[in-house]
Structure formats: C-alpha cells, structure tokens
C-alpha cells in the first residue's frame, strides 16, 4: 500500500500573529515557519502504517514556494520515503491545492491519502474534503483512530457530540485530529538521512492545473482588543462582582 501525505508550511503555532499596519495582510516578517501540526500527525500516522507493515511507501507532497522544501525535509526526517514539491509563487487556495493534489494522486495512485484536518494559518478545514470530492472517493475527517483492512479502512471521527465510526472503501481520504497520535521528534541521524532522500520538484504547469485564486483579501485587521480586567482578592469578591457589576449571574 502506498500512502500520500500532503503537508503545508505554516507559521509556527507559538507565534502570535498580527496584521500589518496598512491592513493588507498578516505580518510574517521573520516569523518562525513550521510543518502544520496536523500534517505532522498525518506523517506520523503514515509512518506508523509503514512500520506496522501495512504500507510500503510514504510520499510527502507540498504545494508552495521553494521554501516548502524545508517542511518536506522535515517530513522525510520523520520517516517519509520521498517528497514532491509542486512549486508555485502564488498563494494557492484549498480548491486549487485540491485540484493540484488530484493530479498528483492520478500519477501516484496511492491507496490512502492522509491530510491534516486544518492548516493553522487560514483555518480553512477544506482541502481533504475537496480532494475526496474531486476524486469521487470516501473521506474520514477529524480522525482519532484509523484501522486499515483489506480494501477498506475504518475511521473513528471526532464529531460535535462525541465519536463516530465510518467504514470507507479504499482508496480513501483521512484527515487527522489531535488525538490520532503523538508525533515523534526527528532524530539527528534521521535528519541527516533525510537530506539524501529524493525530493522532486514540479510545477502547476507540468500538471496542467489552473489553480488561480477565487477570493481576494480586501483587508486583514487585528480583532478588537479586550480591555484589561481586574484581579479579585477572594471568592466573595468574585461572586459580588459577577452579581452586581457584570450582572451575569443572579
């Protein structure tokens, strides 16, 4: 079995992002960039499938600028076998990414495609579902457990009310939630080894995909600041404030 894992380069989850002062976008100057945490979970799951003897090959793929090579190298250090960069200078929206990934899928014919449930920059939560739709295949989104058997996969999903299990025909899409696994750290020897693993670069033109954006960002602003509150000295004071000042309890 072959597993394809699309990964995205995003701002590190510890960075507190702010809008540029002219409100034309987010200020990412010098911000630390990382592998999207949900993609890390996706790579980990694929690598575990390989380690369990259920998958033969794990391929990481990213759509982005040449800088995304860094995150593909990280993916290789975490255990992916090879990587593909679909290089583009434009910022590709989830629909465009899904169209590009569809072409990669058609070339590679993976049995399972594991994506993150959301990229923590745009918080779109769309790409996996769109790719599944374009391919006409099944999806197990927000997965907290994945069990592969012959020709199918059972996915336990984190839903609003609790957990749901669905059975999907292969090939299928899985998108990861936080509880699916705890990703490993890349060891130094594996980081060194990753430098020698194959990383192929192609372009959207090679794939013949039109991934032009449909949305224009008119402005990006900081949300209204909350006014600083007060510290209360005791539970009595807290209850009094909530009753008589904020009037949120009676």
């Amino acid at each position: 079995m072959k597993v394809l894992v699309p990964v995205k380069r995003v701002v590190d989850y510890n960075v507190k992002v702010k809008a540029k002062s002219d409100e034309t976008g987010v200020d990412l100057a010098n911000a630390k960039m990382s592998l999207n945490p949900f993609c890390e979970i996706a790579i980990e799951e694929a690598v575990r499938l390989k380690e369990a003897g259920k998958a033969e090959e794990v391929i990481a793929v990213s759509v982005g600028t040449s800088a995304s090579q860094e995150q593909l190298r990280t993916s290789l250090a975490l255990g992916a076998d090879r990587a593909i960069l679909v290089e583009t200078e434009i910022e590709v929206e989830p629909l465009g990414v899904a169209k590009i990934l569809k072409e990669v899928v058609n070339k590679e014919n993976p049995d399972l495609i594991i994506l993150g449930k959301q990229a923590i920059d745009d918080d779109s939560n769309q790409t996996g579902q769109m790719l599944a739709s374009l391919l006409g295949i099944a999806q197990g989104t927000f997965a907290s457990e994945v069990n592969i058997s012959e020709g199918s996969v059972e996915v336990t999903r984190e839903i609003d009310g609790g957990l749901q299990t669905v059975k999907l025909n292969l090939p299928a899409i899985v998108t990861t939630d936080l509880r699916l696994n705890e990703p490993r750290y890349a060891s130094l020897p594996n980081i060194m080894k990753a430098k020698k693993k194959p990383l192929e670069t192609i372009t959207t033109d090679d794939l013949g995909v039109d991934a032009s954006p449909r949305l224009t960002t008119v402005k990006v602003a900081n949300p209204p600041e909350r006014e600083a509150g007060v510290k209360v000295e005791s539970v009595d004071e807290l209850v009094d404030k909530l009753k008589n000042e904020a009037k949120v309890i009676s």
Partner: peptide
C-alpha cells in the same frame, strides 16, 4: 477569523 482569531480577514 484567521490565525487562531489573531487576525480578521475580509475576503471577497
């Protein structure tokens, strides 16, 4: 909201 609500984007 984008970036964990740290920014609000207006999109057309």
């Amino acid at each position: 909201p984008i970036y964990a609500g740290n920014c609000i984007a207006t999109v057309q």
